[in-house]
Design a protein around this nucleic acid. Structure first.
Length: 576
RNA sequence: GGCAGCGUAGCUCAGUGGUAGAGCAGGGGAAUCAUAAUCCCUUGGUCGGGGGUUCAAAUCCCUCCGCUGCUACCA
């Protein structure tokens, strides 16, 4: 298959600043984006992978208040914490930015100005709840009161969680502030900018219709919004923490207001690229990834959970289309369903499920990376249980991959002095394996190119299994008794296989891949990328020099025990 | 309530018109290099229920049931 030398731009949905993400958030955006970006780099394509924390909005202000911090300090600390945990998960972005940084401010104001000048924004005055005690406007969800439909006393202003009916804060009986519990509320007029999304329906529909390779999940959600009729959307808010609306937009009627977090957050994909260029002294290079003819050779991939799909198929595209400028739209949008935890939702407040920090407390990142990629919720929601997790880790990682590396390297150390044996020639058995792997490696790459993670992981596993099958057929522990050269050839092939496995495994399990590689030979210094084996398997499996020393690595994957499973169910929650 | 996705072997999931599949779990065997790890063979499903279209339906249509999510001011 030819390898187009195009640039690849990868973004993952921005994690919200408030709180450590759980495994579902991780697999649905950041992790799959990382594996994809690593694959592209491994194939030698110029790749830019950016992400950032999404920091604005009233939720952040209130979380900071609760933490007893000012919002700037709160966000700085939270950003540092997320950056650290993501780095420890092996997420390899070229830059991890912040939506509160200057580039995003400039870009958000630029896009708004373009939209305003083109007549796609208009001023509308809305009625909103103002809390005199809190001295702020309250978003609907921060007004609580008695539900007019079912009498539930703690219904939120956007929806009653008891009867699930959609509400307006004005409907609530005895409304009060969720922040202070004060009932000293009033309705005030507030003027806001509205984005006239409804004008873009035909353009959006045509754009979506051209995306034949997007998941059904994505196009069906997008079409549903278009079919129901797009509402014009308010893109400003009466809060303090956000990108300020500049004076030249809105005729001076929007003093003190900021843009809505969902308006500025996706713009931060561009902002993060700008931040990357600034930090690396690349000047205007960021523009070549996003703007005009310079970005013609860029293929842009987005990764996100299904909750983010409307904002990326409708909201952000309208911003770009409406700007009248040639900014890049997403080429390939990969959306994911959710991972459930024993059939229910992951929940911070109920201490149910596994979060990025607690996951790393109990096992290394690569265990999680493999499990999550092999079970990515692509077709439908998937379900996490400790028993399932343990069976995948123990079987696929410990028994199939770990044991293969262990058995061949230990045998080489015991019977061939820990050196790659040069005797013997590859025969029919080896040729059959080479042909099988030529096919399987091609298939594995095709699954990645098609952004199909479960299938890719299943093919990788099948490649590991092929190694064990070969070794059992070749049985060097038997042939060595009568034909040392024959056994030597089998060991040489087995060691070459270990080397190839390291290269194939790197996008999914970068740390383990490096360990495996270094048991055979040092990884070439440089970028840290362990490149894809682009050659024919006949060549790739004849790479190691005769006589070169190897070592048997320590146990690569510790098996998960029943006692551990029981302890983790106790700690994180289990079947109810 | 409306809408969307999903419902396939005990479990996790492929399969979108042409004789039901994979991995794990279960059963039998081989091997002994290896973390008792591996390899081979194998049991197991009226594809959520019902109706329809078709020479042919897991696949298309209708209807019912169930699960999950979204429903625009949570992000």
């Amino acid at each position: 298959m030819s390898t187009p030398k195009k640039r690849v731009l990868v973004t993952s949905a921005l994690p919200y600043i408030n709180g450590i993400k759980h495994l579902g958030n991780l697999v649905g955006s950041m992790l799959t984006a990382d594996v994809f970006a690593r694959f592209q780099r491994a194939r030698g394509r110029e790749t830019l992978f950016v992400c950032a924390t999404d920091e604005h909005g009233s939720t952040t202000e209130l979380a900071a208040m609760e933490a007893g911090q000012d919002v700037v300090t709160f966000c700085a600390e939270q950003h540092a914490a997320q950056a650290d945990i993501c780095r420890r998960f092996g997420l390899s972005w070229d830059y991890f930015g912040r939506s509160s940084n200057t580039p995003n401010h400039k870009l958000t104001q630029h896009f708004a100005r373009q939209l305003w000048n083109a007549g796609h924004l208009e001023l509308r005055t809305t009625k909103q709840v103002y809390s005199n005690t809190d001295k702020r406007f309250l978003s609907d969800r921060y007004v609580i009161g008695t539900c007019p439909h079912c009498g539930y006393p703690n219904a939120r202003g956007d929806q009653c969680e008891n009867c699930t009916r959609v509400l307006d804060p004005a409907d609530l009986i005895n409304p009060r502030s969720a922040i202070s519990d004060s009932s000293d509320l009033e309705i005030r007029d507030s003027t806001h900018l509205f984005l006239k999304q409804s004008q873009f329906v035909p353009q959006l529909r045509e754009w979506i219709a051209g995306k034949k390779d997007w998941p059904v999940l994505v196009t069906s959600i997008a079409n549903k919004w278009l079919d129901e009729g797009l509402h014009d959307r308010g893109i400003t808010r009466d809060v303090e923490w956000g990108v300020p609306v500049p004076d030249d937009i809105g005729g001076g009627q929007l003093k003190g207001k900021v843009f809505y977090v969902w308006f500025d957050a996706p713009i931060e994909y561009i902002g993060a690229t700008w931040e990357w260029a600034e930090v690396n002294g690349k000047g205007d290079a960021w523009k070549s990834w996003w703007f005009g003819d310079d970005a013609k050779d860029v293929t842009y991939f987005q990764f996100m959970g299904k909750d983010n799909i409307p904002f990326h198929t409708v909201g952000f595209p309208v911003t770009i289309m409406g700007s009248g400028e040639p900014w890049k739209l997403v080429d390939r949008l990969k959306g994911f369903n959710y991972i459930n935890y024993y059939g229910g939702k992951f929940s911070t407040s109920h201490k149910r499920g596994v979060f990025m920090d607690t996951a790393l407390e109990i096992l290394p990142a690569d265990y999680w990376r493999y499990y999550l990629i092999a079970n990515a919720p692509e077709g439908s929601d998937s379900n996490f249980t400790w028993d399932h997790f343990a069976s995948v880790v123990n079987k696929d990682l410990a028994d199939v991959l770990g044991n293969f590396v262990n058995r061949i390297t230990r045998f080489c150390v015991a019977r061939f002095d820990g050196r790659v044996p040069g005797e013997g020639e590859y025969g029919a058995e080896e040729q059959a394996l080479i042909e099988e792997l030529d096919m399987r490696v091609r298939t594995y790459a095709e699954h990645f190119e098609a952004v199909e993670f479960r299938k890719a992981a299943a093919e990788l596993r099948a490649i590991w299994v092929a190694g064990n099958e070969y070794l059992t057929r070749a049985a060097p522990w038997t042939t060595i008794k009568t034909d040392r050269a024959r056994a030597a050839a089998a060991v040489r092939l087995g060691l070459n296989l270990v080397h190839v496995f390291a290269h194939l495994t790197w996008p999914i399990m970068p740390a383990i891949a490096r360990t495996i590689h270094e048991s055979i030979q040092p990884v070439a210094a440089g970028t840290g990328v362990i490149p894809w084996p682009e050659g024919s398997m006949a060549d790739e499996l004849d790479q190691l020099e005769a006589g070169q020393p190897i070592s048997a690595p320590e146990v690569l994957f510790a098996k998960i025990t029943d006692e551990q499973i029981a302890a983790w169910i106790e700690r994180f929650g289990g079947p109810e």
